[in-house]
């Protein structure tokens, strides 16, 4: 029985969230005395590096067809069954969340998504997961023998103490997907928001989409992803994929800088797990200041140039 991790990749590279998932699996493996096997269903040939994060073996299943929920799940479930997976770990990404429920059904497993902690084994198998869109946490006991866990990015630290591991090729006969992928448009050179360690976010206080160049400049100087509040995405100033909050995406970066966002309860829900929060707002009564670690009361149009010039010096 082993712990199996889905090694998610993008553009022929393993994702940072994969390293987190393997490190996470390794920690459970150490607790339970199980080995960690990473499964690489992609066209990446060289996967030995996954050993550094705690995998004792990587199974490579060459796949050049891209990810489809039905076919990739069938391949992955079949490998999980072959090697007798008792715990399956994926990242709580769009890919991971398409995969995890299908795997859970195939393996007759218990499923938990949005998981943010290593399981507590003192009384069964209990995981902590984010609920109410970041407003609370729940402790959930998983009852079935096999467990499928989707781990929230940035909730578990990468541990790269190991060394390269053995790799093996496997092939699986799966039915062709019923889904045809017509086009994939990835925004290149940008950090995906859910995985970003640093996020610069702005709201209506920026007055219009034409003023976002300052936000982008600040973000690029510190290597951050950009995000926005709900009104900003509703008005079409920014794409909805940047909307963080209760009805957008929930993030937990190491640093969240909120500029011209008042801090409504729905917005705070999506960002309050950030490790350090900076609020910049001209209204000293803005609710964000109650949830921030650092604050600057003032006009974003005066403060942003100061921050940018401080970074350039």
């Amino acid at each position: 029985m082993s712990i199996v991790v889905f090694a998610e990749s993008s553009d022929n590279q393993f994702k940072k969230s994969t390293f987190e998932a393997i490190s996470y699996a390794k920690e459970i493996g150490t607790l339970m005395g199980k080995e960690v096997v990473a499964v690489n269903i992609s066209s990446i040939a060289n996967s030995a590096e996954l050993g550094k994060y705690g995998a004792s073996k990587v199974l490579n299943c060459n796949n050049t067809d891209g990810f489809t929920s039905d076919s990739t799940s069938e391949i992955f479930a079949s490998i999980c069954k072959q090697i007798g997976a008792s715990i399956v770990v994926v990242s709580n990404s769009y890919v991971g969340k398409s995969l995890a429920p299908r795997i859970a059904i195939s393996l007759n497993a218990s499923l938990a998504t949005n998981v943010i902690s290593v399981p507590d084994l003192s009384n069964g198998f209990t995981v902590k997961r984010g609920v109410f869109s970041g407003k609370a946490f729940a402790f959930v006991n998983l009852n079935r023998d096999i467990k499928v866990l989707a781990i929230t990015p940035n909730s578990f630290e990468i541990n790269a103490n190991g060394s390269d591991c053995a790799t093996e090729s496997v092939s699986v006969n799966a039915s062709p997907s019923k889904i045809t992928i017509n086009a994939v448009n990835k925004v290149t050179g940008k950090i995906p928001l859910t995985e970003a360690e640093l996020v610069v976010s702005a709201g209506r206080g920026m007055k219009g989409p034409e003023n976002w160049n300052m936000i982008e400049e600040l973000a690029s100087l510190i290597g951050a992803a950009t995000a926005c509040s709900k009104p900003v995405s509703d008005m079409g100033w920014r794409p909805h994929s940047e909307h963080v909050g209760q009805t957008g995406i929930t993030i937990k970066p190491n640093l969240y800088i909120a500029i011209g966002i008042s801090g409504a309860i729905q917005h705070l829900a999506g960002v309050s797990s950030s490790k350090t929060i900076v609020a910049i707002n001209k209204d000293p009564e803005a609710p964000f200041f109650k949830s921030a670690d650092y604050g600057i009361v003032g006009d974003a149009f005066e403060i942003l140039p100061k921050l940018i010039s401080a970074l350039k010096n």
Partner: peptide, 28 residues
Amino acid sequence: AANYQSYSLPAAKGSVKLIDAENAGELI
């Protein structure tokens, strides 16, 4: 498949440290 056993709320933040707007570069 699963039982929700208990819940918790996020830890409250301490009070915010304000930085003077004139000296905003100090944040960096």
